[in-house]
């Protein structure tokens, strides 16, 4: 196959690029999850109006604007307030902020699928509001969100290619570089597509495993 030699010639630099793609996805996913958890608690369980409203505005803003715009904004606006972010830092922050908006939607849907009667049963035994939320609503709700969160991670991995526009040497950036240097565009982009498909598939599989690990009979089916 024609693409094979391009892969053999450049495997080291491609592997490193893959590492960047995965790391950006992983860090922004985790950071995004932490933020999303906070947002979700505010949206569902806070008794105050203003924070609820602020979170909604945040979610709508980040879901309503292109991720590339968000990334450029973080990368080019940060020096204006005296912070110099590396391409990697800017990408992680931008993707995390973006992913937090989506993840909080998934978490909210998952938690809202938990019947109120589960919460009542915990309260009736003498648990406090937060005790009931943590030991009953979250374990069930998180399980319900798991497959959406898995999809979000795979989406992040694919969209991490946008980081190439702020010169992060991830997969797409490196592929473009190799293609331009060797004029073997078709082969390089074919190889790139295959890498994305294979890794994306592996990630999905991994998440299925996680889901199966947390599976409880009769809970989500």
């Amino acid at each position: 196959m024609l693409g094979l030699d391009i892969l053999i010639e450049n495997w080291q630099i491609l592997l490193k690029a893959l590492g960047y793609s995965l790391l950006v996805s992983l860090f922004s996913f985790i950071l995004g999850f932490a933020l999303a958890s906070l947002f979700t608690v505010v949206r569902l369980f806070s008794s105050f109006k203003v924070p609820k409203w602020a979170v909604r505005a945040y979610v709508e803003t980040f879901r309503g604007t292109p991720m590339m715009v968000q990334l450029f904004f973080i990368y080019y606006a940060s020096p204006a307030i005296g912070i110099n972010l590396s391409p990697f830092q800017a990408s992680v922050i931008a993707f995390a902020l973006n992913s937090a908006a989506y993840q909080s939607e998934y978490l909210r849907a998952g938690l809202m699928s938990v019947p109120k009667t589960q919460y009542e049963a915990a309260e009736s035994l003498g648990l406090s509001k937060w005790g009931a939320v943590f030991s009953v609503v979250l374990p069930v709700g998180l399980r319900a969100s798991l497959s959406s969160l898995g999809n979000e991670f795979v989406a992040l991995f694919k969209y991490s290619s946008i980081a190439s526009f702020v010169t992060l040497p991830e997969l797409f950036y490196v592929a473009r570089y190799i293609a331009a240097g060797s004029f073997r565009y078709l082969e390089m982009y074919t190889v790139l597509a295959i890498i994305y498909v294979v890794i994306g598939f592996a990630l999905s599989k991994t998440f299925r495993k996680v889901e199966r690990f947390f599976y409880v009979p009769g809970l989500m089916d």
Partner: peptide, 20 residues
Amino acid sequence: PVEYRKKIGIVFQHYNLFLH
């Protein structure tokens, strides 16, 4: 009232066992 609920058991029509 949270303090006292532990002394008052309740059983619901639809059982409401913890599903997980």
